[in-house]
């Protein structure tokens, strides 16, 4: 009973998150300006992190947690560098 319930709720949650990622990718392609695209990239990173956490629940393995943490870190650094680039025109001054 609980296995069936969890199977379906995890599946639906993953579909919802993937839809959210799709919308963010749409904004990434559409723009219109660079800051919109960077915001979209940041959202895609956060959604990928949440997707990995749900994947961990689906497989019952705690390994995905570390992958989620790494994706979160990479997203943070990437967005920071891109925003800095937008501000100054170069990342390393």
């Amino acid at each position: 009973m609980s296995a069936v319930l969890l199977f379906w709720s995890v599946l639906i949650a993953q579909l919802l998150i993937v839809m959210a990622m799709g919308l963010a990718v749409f904004r990434l392609i559409r723009g219109p300006r660079a800051q919109d695209r960077i915001l979209a990239i940041d959202t895609v990173y956060v959604n990928a992190m949440l997707l990995l956490v749900t994947l961990g629940i689906r497989t019952g393995s705690v390994l995905y947690f570390e992958a989620a943490l790494v994706i979160g870190l990479l997203g943070f650094v990437a967005t920071l560098a891109l925003a800095k680039f937008l501000m100054r025109g170069e990342v390393i001054e």
Binding site: M1, L6, I12, A13, L16, A20, R27, T43, T54
Partner: peptide, 24 residues
């Protein structure tokens, strides 16, 4: 526990999706 997990999973995923709808 399965009910609680499902509830919070669906709530979180829905809120994330609404946020991305807002992005559009």
């Amino acid at each position: 526990a399965a009910l609680l997990t499902s509830f919070f999973l669906l709530l979180g995923a829905t809120v994330t999706l609404i946020g991305c709808i807002g992005l559009i």
